[in-house]
Amino acid sequence: MARNGHESRRLFDEQFVRCQDHLYTYIASLVPNAQDVGELFQQTSLQLLQNWEKYDAQRPFMPWACAVALNEVRTFARQQRHRDRLLSDALLATISETQFKAAEVIDARLDALGGCVEGLPPAKRALVEKCYSGECSIKDMAASMSLPPQTLYKRLERVRRELYQCIELKQPGEQMP
């Protein structure tokens, strides 16, 4: 029995280690603010660790982990929605469900993203690095560059569009809209 428990825990740990990146991007798909994502990721990790015995090793780990994460996100969103203009509770659940249905489609695109970022022209890549580093706000960055913030937001949007196009173009078959 103890052996079984140990084995279950080992399986859990293995899955837990594997899922970290996926879990993070999943949370980020529902709550876009990086600091909030970090907090929710931590909170979800804690919940998973605290409830590891509830994990059924016969079933896929990620749906269970994402369900835990979704609960955390929804609780958070109920408190923060007005501040952050988050999606409604129902839409968070629907977006989440969409991701499960289209897991392969999404994974394939994220797999291609590293190469796409690497292939960006240096200035665009630098913009992405800087904007996503969290070192300063877009507004502060724009001020330091003597640019209106809107210009920087626009540039960032264009780079995201390029990246989205790139991950689509790297798919062997049909592309997503």
Partner: peptide, 11 residues
Amino acid sequence: AIYMRMNGWLM
């Protein structure tokens, strides 16, 4: 969802 996951990946 793809767009936002991409955003999360960059983060």
